[in-house]
Amino acid sequence: MLSAILVMAGIALVLGGVLGWAAIRFRVQEDPLVEKIDAILPQTQCGQCGYPGCKPYAEAISKGDADINRCPPGGEEGVKRLAELLGVEPKPLGEGLEHKPKSVAVIDEALCIGCTLCIQACPVDAIVGAAKQMHTVVADECTGCELCIQPCPVDCIRMEVIHEDIANWKWRYPVIPLKKVA
């Protein structure tokens, strides 16, 4: 009886040791959850989620402080991917948030007075110009966050939807109705 117990205990110890060693030795270095969430967020840095940027929102999600449906630029697709990553049910975008087509800010250069307020508001430094000098948006860098609109004292910034053109046009998913559409 005793020897049986000892043998079992011995086996348990040895196997436990091997498993423990393997866990340390073959540990897979994974991205921390925050990084993974951040990678899904669109990096618009618009703050519509209520956090001052995508990273803080990612941190809040990973801590469980924020819901996954607070990111309008990411849209349904983004919520779905977050839900997949976190193993929860996807849900519609939160109240008062809506997904808009991707746009860029455009400054009406005739109206701009060069106050630099928009430059300070831009989360990705996509507006160039200096005090008393007219400002302009570097369209390639603009994330379409709209944060520059509100601070402008002369309302010279508007959002322009990025239209489909030949350069960004995509082939559509072929539609073949195999099944009867009722």
Binding site: L41, Q43, K55, V124, A126, T143
Partner: peptide, 10 residues
């Protein structure tokens, strides 16, 4: 574009 925006934001 997202990576670039992240970098610039940071």
């Amino acid at each position: 574009a997202a990576d670039q925006a992240r970098e610039r934001h940071e």
